[in-house]
């Protein structure tokens, strides 16, 4: 075997014409990762559900950066669903609290609030 002609294993193939491919963000509008929703639910909704939203946001960014458009869209859809459900959960808690106040009336004024 001659050392003068090394095999071509290490050379990457030329990138496709569109500039797509692995290791780079695809062109076109990226899906919404709902990172702002994640921050809002984590720090202002007082629901630890927001932590899961951050995981979804990181998944969207990771798949998008790797060129996985379908995967990024799928994770973005999950992130959106999760954001909606956590927002609904937050509203339900507030409504239940208001009902509780109305039902218990003045007697609830001693309720300890630490939010």
């Amino acid at each position: 075997m001659s050392y003068n002609e090394p095999p071509n294993y290490g050379t990457p193939p030329p990138p496709p014409a569109g500039g797509y491919g692995y290791g780079g963000a695809p062109q076109g509008p990226p899906p919404n990762n709902n990172l702002v929703w994640a921050i809002l639910t984590t720090l202002f909704c007082c629901l630890p559900l927001g932590v899961a939203s951050i995981v979804f946001a990181a998944q969207v960014n990771g798949k998008w950066a790797a060129g996985d458009v379908a995967g990024a869209n799928e994770s973005a859809e999950k992130a959106k669903k999760f954001a909606i459900w956590s927002a609904i959960a937050g509203v339900v808690v507030i409504v239940l609290y208001i009902i509780l106040i109305v039902v218990l009336g003045v007697a609830s004024s001693s309720v300890d609030t630490d939010y």
């Binding site: 007082c46 629901l47 630890p48 808690v93 507030i94 609290y97 106040i101 609830s108 004024s109 001693s110 309720v111 300890d112 609030t113 630490d114 939010y115």
Partner: peptide
Amino acid sequence: PGHYPTCPF
């Protein structure tokens, strides 16, 4: 106290 709901957690 009593103005806003307490954090559920």
